[in-house]
Design a protein around this nucleic acid. Structure first.
Lengths: 245, 245
DNA sequence: CAATAATGTGTATCTTTAACACTATAAAAT
DNA sequence: ATTTTATAGTGTTAAAGATACACATTATTG
């Protein structure tokens, strides 16, 4: 077959995860060796992205990229911004890296940014020989290309979105406790909530449904488990607007 | 010189305006004649857009496109979404139209959507032989390509944005009345506000400053004029978040 | 069986929102 | 000059929502 790539359009994906404490992002280590040697010229981190195929929808490309990285399908994927600055690939390290590929890619690449949300624990940490790992979003530094800017914009968009749509649940296990949910929103929004007031609010969200199950194996009073019902949400929110806090 | 175009990346601009009553969008008439004849094959409406140059930033391209249409500079320009569906140029009319340009443009064009806000009255209605006119956003039909989808997404984004940032003032004259301001927000958000409650809220916005001027030449009690102060806004909103209603 | 560690719950105060109707003023018409 | 017209401008009360705050409960572990 041999699908044809577009040499000047790519999709970059910011993969967010949550580990019960912190909001994290999945990054790939990039190591540049000297030609025909083991000597490492530099090592840094990148988001994952790839050029799109000529016969591929943007959303498809994003799904493919996240699948290649995580092996997961059917994740939430949200396009948030497109980056095309003339100098976005011009850092010396990036130039050096891109030289490897010769003329396959254009010097001017416009990249469409997507983010994706997954419960971090479900994801293996190495894929296809690449070194992939979770990093707390607040501690990320030295990303390749313009990926810091892309990450920043993705975060802004996520913060925005999470207040208006029940998208946060994608970052939680199917069954979660209210403490986990509170910590998640605190991590994303960078705030603190009062436990009683938080629960009062959640108890009004009839799409956050209590299960007849409790946590097991925890060294303290086990919490009740809840799940998000998209069904209930869709039915009760036909006309409504705001979601949260 | 001869700047080189990218044949597969374009920018499309949704130009919004407000005429004291309705939210409007600037559209360009597209008339397709039969080859070497006056017979009109079809007439429809488009947003304005153009391919980007290889040495041109996306924001620059958007500014250029709006300038070509309106002769205005320094407008608010906001990127809101990127459209790259495989079938976005495949309607028969669009195919017919694009044939004129031969192979200049790729069959697969990804377009970055921007919108721009201007007080409609400042804008001339014909530019460079093109027939350009304002249409109420709610009554727009039969746009070329995927431009209806693009307009819809722009509107959504504008509605979102206008609630959180003082961007609505870009659609008002520099000096405006509170009634104009209220009508503007009603038009964008598709709601109605109570006059007294609206004014109560605005009076808490210290960046909406009363002038020592009134309307003149109106056949009724003249209203006080106000203006938006970006200065005051920036100073008082260093840490704050929400803007409106 | 005591210590630990987190869960789960109610009330009072303050703030914000929502609903509602009449007087004031300039220009235009008589 | 007087009346008509059209829009500006203004305050109060009731309801809803947000905030602040402390202690008893319950599995597990040692």
């Amino acid at each position: 077959m041999g699908r044809e790539l577009m040499n000047n359009i790519s999709v970059d994906c910011v993969v967010f995860g949550f580990d019960s404490e912190q909001l994290k992002v999945l990054l790939v280590e990039r190591t540049m060796n000297e030609a025909n040697s083991d000597k490492i010229l530099f090592t840094d981190l990148t988001l994952t992205g790839y050029h799109i195929y000529k016969d591929e929808e943007l959303d498809e490309a994003a799904a493919r990229i996240v699948f290649d990285l995580t092996g997961l399908n059917n994740l939430v994927l949200e396009q948030f911004y497109t980056f095309g600055a003339l100098d976005r690939l011009e850092h010396p390290n990036d130039q050096l890296w891109l030289e490897q590929f010769g003329d396959v890619f254009s010097k001017r690449v416009v990249t469409v940014g997507y983010y994706s949300l997954l419960p971090s624990t479900e994801v293996p940490v190495i894929q296809k020989g690449r070194k992939v790992a979770w990093y707390p979003v607040n501690e990320v530094r030295n990303l390749a290309y313009d990926h810091e800017q892309i990450l920043k914009k993705a975060l802004e968009h996520l913060r925005y979105k999470v207040r208006h749509e029940p998208i946060g649940f994608e970052l939680l296990p199917v069954k979660f406790t209210l403490t986990q949910m509170q910590k998640l929103y605190e991590a994303i929004l960078g705030t603190q909530f009062d436990k009683r007031n938080f629960r009062k609010k959640v108890s009004q969200m009839n799409y956050v449904v209590p299960l007849k199950e409790k946590q097991i194996g925890v060294a303290h009073k086990p919490a009740q488990l809840f799940m998000f019902s998209r069904d209930v949400y869709d039915k009760t929110h036909k006309e409504r607007f705001d979601f949260f806090i």
